[in-house]
């Protein structure tokens, strides 16, 4: 990690009602070009932290900086213009719109001259979506829907891509597919921060990881070190191997 980090969230306190923080002073730093995963038990506040960074949940305390510029109180709809893309955990595509409309809508923040090329690039990166481009997104399979959500986020050519459980509800094969795509995306220069329950599979592609519990940082370290720590493995990673892919929940 050299130079100014791509994304820093420092001492974040955030929640849905005033005076009732869910995230209680969590901090996350993502260096340029890194893949960082956020792990932790259900209800730890991982999604709330992601939403707070993306501007969807009000931040009571702490700061967020994107490539050195403070964006703490920036409205959510301006974040994409600054190069921060977010894929929420649930309801992350417009189900009543076609695949293509989802992509076109998201690509609108880009200059008109490059929109068509971006759409073509996304359809090339995700051949499944190209075949279904006219279909209402609500009729896609869980895996295709997740691909669409990622493709939609990439339409803005983000500097930082935030993903909340991109593999939730996917079969082991699709988990591998999605993660392989993420590695490809990172190779193209995008910085990635993601929340995952498929901890082992996520650590396998990540550089570093944070473990969040009850709204606070519990552990952090390189992905390899955390994966090798028996104590952490027992408490947070489940006991299966990378491919056991214990998927705790079904798709939304």
């Amino acid at each position: 990690m050299t130079g100014v980090p791509a994304l820093v969230a420092h001492g974040i306190e955030a929640g849905y009602e005033p005076g009732l923080p869910i995230v209680k002073g969590a901090s996350v730093t993502v260096g340029r070009g890194e893949i960082v995963v956020l792990l932790g038990p259900n209800g730890a506040g991982k999604s709330t932290l992601m939403k707070a960074i993306a501007g969807l949940v009000p931040i009571a305390r702490g700061t967020v900086t994107l490539a050195g510029a403070e964006i703490t109180q920036t409205a959510a709809h301006r974040m994409v213009r600054l190069g921060l893309a977010f894929v929420p955990q649930t309801e992350n595509v417009f189900t009543t719109m076609s695949v293509e409309e989802n992509l076109v809508l998201a690509g609108h923040v880009a200059p008109a001259s490059v929109r068509a090329a971006r759409l073509a690039a996304m359809l090339e990166l995700f051949p499944d979506l190209a075949r279904q481009r006219g279909l209402a997104a609500g009729r896609l399979s869980g895996g295709q829907r997740q691909m669409l959500a990622v493709a939609r986020a990439l339409m803005i050519e983000p500097h930082v891509l935030m993903l909340d459980e991109p593999s939730a509800g996917l079969s082991p094969k699709l988990v591998r597919d999605v993660f392989a795509k993420l590695v490809e995306i990172r190779a193209s220069g995008v910085t990635i921060l993601m929340v995952e329950q498929n901890a082992r599979a996520a650590l396998a592609i990540a550089d570093r990881a944070y473990i969040l519990a009850d709204g606070r940082n519990r552990h952090e370290g390189s992905a390899a070190a955390l994966a090798a720590d028996p104590d952490i493995a027992e408490h947070y990673l489940g006991l299966g191997g990378a491919d056991a892919s214990v998927v705790g929940r079904s798709a939304p």
Binding site: A54, G55, L56, A75, A76, H77, R78, M79, V80, R81, F86, P88, E91, N92, V93, F94, T95, T96, M97, E101, V104, L105, A106, H108, V109, R152, I156
Partner: peptide, 17 residues
């Protein structure tokens, strides 16, 4: 399209800009 987006899911609409 933005109107349809807000009508379906206002939070996601903000996320897409």
């Amino acid at each position: 399209r933005s109107m349809r987006a807000v009508s379906e899911n206002p939070a996601l609409a903000r996320v897409v800009g």
